[in-house]
């Protein structure tokens, strides 16, 4: 999932209070799971902004709405009447969601309320861990399901570096050594022979350098 964090309230207010009718648009998918932009957080922020405006005597109408997925066009189209009745949208979706709103309703300014941070997992309640860089050429099978590109501080495809101490990374001791994890996992899978493979440098052209990436599937298109 995509992990995001709410922007500082001062930054949000700076942009939001320039408008007279503001709609907070939350998203009930990834950013709800990471407690940044789901229905609860949208209601909280709306209430907080209304109080801040009242306290400062700023005349502004603030409404809120949460959609199931802000990055899906079909789920935003039914909101046309609601969105067009506001001067601006404060999006509590990830960058993709905010851009989708902006694309469908180009005449309405979209203010991002979140900073989109990374793709990751909910490690435990309240803890989210980055675990995918979206390289476009997944090699997880070779590394026992642990990605060294994101989990290793040195991004080594042919590790370990030899600097880890007690299973901890020498660059950031609070981080478990990804290569120690990979070795332990491959041992558990009885597949340590995979460590003898030498992997060539990653082909990053699949991730960047050609503008935004796009996947087209004819079988899914209408």
């Amino acid at each position: 999932m995509i992990v995001a964090e709410q922007k500082p309230i001062k930054e949000i207010m700076e942009n939001a209070f320039k408008f007279k009718r503001l709609l907070l648009l939350g998203c009930n998918s990834c950013v709800a799971e990471c407690a940044a932009g789901g229905e609860k957080e949208t209601n909280e922020l709306a209430s907080l902004l209304r109080m801040a405006a009242l306290k400062q005597g700023i005349p502004i109408q603030i409404d809120e709405k949460t959609v199931e997925r802000q990055c899906v066009r079909e789920l935003l189209v039914p909101l046309e009447e609601l969105i067009l009745s506001h001067d601006a949208i404060l999006s509590l979706g990830c960058g993709a969601g905010a851009q989708m709103v902006s694309e469908i309703y180009p005449e309405i300014p979209v203010i991002p309320g979140l900073n989109t941070e990374f793709m990751g997992e909910t490690q435990e309640q309240g803890v989210w861990l980055e675990n995918c860089v979206g390289c476009g050429d997944c090699m997880l099978f070779y590394f026992g399901g642990i990605c060294p590109l994101v989990r290793c501080s040195k991004h080594l495809l042919n590790g370990p570096c030899g600097g880890s101490q007690g299973g901890r990374c020498e660059v950031a001791p609070e981080v478990p050594c990804a290569w120690q994890l990979i070795i332990d996992r491959l041992k558990a899978q009885n597949s340590l022979e995979r460590l003898y493979e030498i992997y060539p440098p990653k082909d990053w052209s699949k991730k960047q350098g050609k503008g935004p990436r796009k996947i087209i599937r004819e079988d899914q298109k209408v």
């Binding site: 309230i9 907080l48 306290k55």
Partner: peptide
């Protein structure tokens, strides 16, 4: 904490 952030 949220209230403090807006000066309440």
């Amino acid at each position: 904490t949220l209230l403090s952030s807006i000066g309440i």
